[in-house]
Nucleic acid binder design. Sequence first.
DNA 1: TTGTAGGCGTTATCAC
DNA 2: GTGATAACGCCTACAA
Lengths: 341, 341
Amino acid sequence: MSGKRKGLGRATVHDVAKLAGVSSITVSRYFKQPDVVSEALRLRIAEAVQTLDYLPNQAAGGLASTRGRIVAMVIPNISGPIFANTIQSFSDVLNRHGYQLLLASSYFSVEKEEDAVRAFLGWSPAALVLTSQYHSAGTERLIAKAGIPIVETWDYAPERQPLQVGFSHLEVGRQAVEYLHGKGHRRIAFVQNSLVGDLSALDRRDGYMARMTEQGLEPWVFVPTEADPFEAGRQAINSLLQRKQPAEAVIFANDNLAAGGMLAGLRAGMRFPQDGAIFGFGNYAFSELLLPSLTTIRPPAREIGEVAALRILQALGEVEIEGEIPHLNLLDCELIQRESA
Amino acid sequence: MSGKRKGLGRATVHDVAKLAGVSSITVSRYFKQPDVVSEALRLRIAEAVQTLDYLPNQAAGGLASTRGRIVAMVIPNISGPIFANTIQSFSDVLNRHGYQLLLASSYFSVEKEEDAVRAFLGWSPAALVLTSQYHSAGTERLIAKAGIPIVETWDYAPERQPLQVGFSHLEVGRQAVEYLHGKGHRRIAFVQNSLVGDLSALDRRDGYMARMTEQGLEPWVFVPTEADPFEAGRQAINSLLQRKQPAEAVIFANDNLAAGGMLAGLRAGMRFPQDGAIFGFGNYAFSELLLPSLTTIRPPAREIGEVAALRILQALGEVEIEGEIPHLNLLDCELIQRESA
DNA sequence: TTGTAGGCGTTATCAC
DNA sequence: GTGATAACGCCTACAA
C-alpha cells in the first residue's frame, strides 16, 4: 500500500493508539501526564505498549515540543584524572530525571570547544555545560543567543553571564602559599603546567604570585619545556632543588607534575619533605598512594557535576526550587595535608 | 498572522532558502552533498547561512532521514581509571566524522544497563556500544531487534552476535600465572574483586584457576569482604602473606586492589617482591609511580575505543572498507614488567 | 477526560 | 542541477 518513505520500522504512537483503540494523542499523554489519562485507558495502552515493544521516538518528540531531553557538556578531557568525576556525577543526576548526556572534549583548545558547541546546538539541547570561563569569541556569540541555560564549571567568575558552578583558582594558588608559609617556608617556587591552553592553571599561578608578593616574598615560577607531565615534573625538581640555593617548597600546577617531580627526586636519593616540600593540585587517585603521600588540594569534582545538574534541572522546571536559581555556586576545595609537605 | 506553534526561534532551512533565493531542498543538499549544488548557488547559500547564523536541526534531520548522527555507549563507569580512555578515543573518532556521543554508566549493573539502552534507543542512535558480553535478558531482546550495529567491547566472545572489540579476560588470567610460574613461583594466589557485578574479573579468575590446574598447582582464591578496593587489598595481603606458609605471589583482580595491598604491606615493613610478588591488572595511571612500581597487564583501552568507532563508521558507510567488516576484533593486552613481580 | 487538526524542521521521492 | 510535495513521529493548541 504505497508508503513512499520507510521510517524506522518500529512501532509508533499511532500503532499503539490503534491497538489500544484510542487516539494517538492519548498515548502521548499516557507518557507525559499519566494522571490525566483514565485508569481504563491507561491499562489498555500499557498492554499495547508491551505487545508492540513501543519506544517513544525522542527525536520526533523533541522536534514537536521544541525541547529535547538532552544536555550537552564540553569538557577538556574525559580520560584525565579529575574531570571524569564531574562527568560521572553530572550524568547520573541527569539520567535519573530522564535526560541524556551528550559529551565531547576540547583538549583545552577553545577552537575545539567551539566546534563541539556548534555541533551540540544542532541537537537543541535543553542546556549546555562548559568548563572554565575562557572561550573563543565564536563560542561567546553562540551561547549568548542559544536561549538555553548555560553553565560554566570548574571556575568562578561572578561577573559572567552563565551560571557559575566551581571554585576560584586564584584562591587555590593563594591557599597553597598560605599553607607553606605557615610551615615556615620562604623560598616557595611554582611549577607551571607545560600544557598550554590550561588557562585555569595560570590563574592558580597568579594567585600564588599575588599571595607571595603580599607576604613580601619573591615569586619564583618555573616553566617546564617538556610536554609529558612526569618529565616536566622531573625537569622542575632538577632545576629547583639541585642548586646552591634550592627552593624550600615547590607548588606544582597539578598532581601529575608533582608526582613526576617527586618520583624523580626519590630515585635520585632525595627525601621529601626534608629536601623540599612538595605540594600538588587535584588530589588524583594515586596521590594518597605515593610514598610519601602527596599533600594537595582536592577540587570539588563530583560536587560540581551534581550542583550543575541540579541547577539545570531547576532551570528546566524539573526540580522544584523556592525563589531564584542561585547564579553563583562557589564550592569548597579541600586542602589535604599528607606527608610530602 | 496566526503562528499556532512557536518553534525554536532559530533560522531554518526555509529562511536560508528564501534569503538565498533557492528552495529549501537545495539548502539541504548544500550540507549533505555540496558537490551536487552549483558553484553559484553554493556561494549564495553560504552567505545566507552566515548571515542568519543557521544551524541545521539534527533532531529534524534525524527524524526525516531515519538515521540520526548519534552513537550511544553504556560503560560500567566513567570515572574509573580504565574505561575513560576508551570513551575518550571512541568519542574523538566519532566527533571527527560528525557523530555525537550519548553516554551513560551502568555501574556493573545489568539492570541499569538495560535502562540506559532503552533510553538510548528512543534516540534512534546510529549504533550502540556496550561493555562486556554479560547483559540482562531484556537488553538482549532490545539489541536483537534494534536493527543497528551493536558492538560489545572490553571482552571477546566469538560466538556472540554483536561485533566484538576487546580481549579475552580468561587469557589475561592465564597469562599472569604463566609469568609468575616462569619466575619460579608455585604458591600463587588470586584476589578477587570485592565489587560484585564485575563479571569480567571473574573470567580473569577462571583463567587463573584453569592455568594453575594445568600446571599441577593448586588454585588459591581470596575473596575480600571489604568494599573499598584499597581496604580489600590490605585485607588480602594480611591474609595471604602473614601466615606460616605465605603465598609467594599474589595476582590481584585489578591495580587498585594491588596498590592497596602493597601499600599496606610496605607500611607494615614488608618488601616487594622479596616478601611476595605483586601482580595487578589495568595499568592504572599510578601503577608506574608506586615504589616499587607495579607489574601489571595493560588492557588496550584506547585501542578498543578507536577500533569500535572505526568499525561502526564502516558499518554506517562513513569509512570505506574492502570486503566484510571484521566481526571479531581481538586486541592485544601488554604485560608490563616492573619492580613488584 | 478525550479527540481533531496541523505544524515542528528536515529530507526522500519524483518530476523537470 | 533544481524544485514541489509529502512524510518522518510526535506534540501544541483548541474544541468537545
